[in-house]
Amino acid sequence: MLEIKNLHARVEEKEILRGLNFEVKPGEVHAIMGPNGSGKSTLASVLAGKEEYEITGGEVSFKGKDLLAMSAEERAREGLFLAFQYPVEIPGVSNINFLKAALSEVREHRGLPQLTAKEFLALVNEKSKLVELDGQLTNRSVNEGFSGGEKKRNEVFQMAMLDPTLAILDETDSGLDIDALRIVANGVNAMRSPERSFVVITHYQRLLDFIVPDYVHVLYKGRIVKSGTKELALELEERGYDWIKEEVEAANA
């Protein structure tokens, strides 16, 4: 599904990803953890195709295709979805129109027939229930005036609508209370399938109680320095990152 080999990326003059290797197979859920500034969000942005990051080395293949050669919208249409850490507000553009436009482009790309208005509304109804999103929110401007929790639920709702093959959740749990967290996690879990993969970027082990990962990786200084199963996340929660840092420094020394 996703294969990252020796990826290097920088923003302005600062190198952030320094030889990252990482593979995701269909149906797998990978959690990526790591201390602040380790490059977690950069990885998400680079995979989604944000232009301010410069790729200085490495390869990324997505479903066998060269991901880095695709534009941001092509990646999305191919089935790569990024749930943003800070969802952007677009004043005056209704959530529903936004989704309709997006879904129509995505379906066209995937060779699927366009939905009728009725089918589309039925789908909106179905998927918004998944994250307990109030019908009113679908009619408001994209993310404008949404609370933090509403924004995150809206991200998962959009994910459900656009039906991606790989979903990257960038700190979708940060700033959520436990109820909102449960709702978001339930939405994600409902979408788990043998064909769909998830990369869950998080600070907190707490999320992984709800979205149970197959693998947990630690990102540090732009590289994956340790991989394990969900027990690793528990260990990180308990011990922090210092012991990992020490291991890395020791190995480098």
């Binding site: 989604a48 195709g49 944000k50 232009e51 534009s71 941001a72 919208e73 990646r75 999305a76 249409r77 979805f81 990024l82 943003f84 969802p87 952007v88 677009i90 004043p91 005056g92 553009v93 129109n97 936004f98 989704l99 436009a101 997006a102 879904l103 482009e105 995505v106 790309h109 401007s141 994209v142 959009q158 656009l162």
Partner: peptide, 24 residues
């Protein structure tokens, strides 16, 4: 970028944003 990530073309994204801006 947010619009692009949802699969919209740049033209379409700008059109949406501008129409939103002018909505009032």
């Amino acid at each position: 970028f947010y619009c692009l990530q949802r699969g919209l073309s740049e033209e379409k994204a700008i059109s949406l944003i501008v129409n939103g801006y002018a909505k009032e």
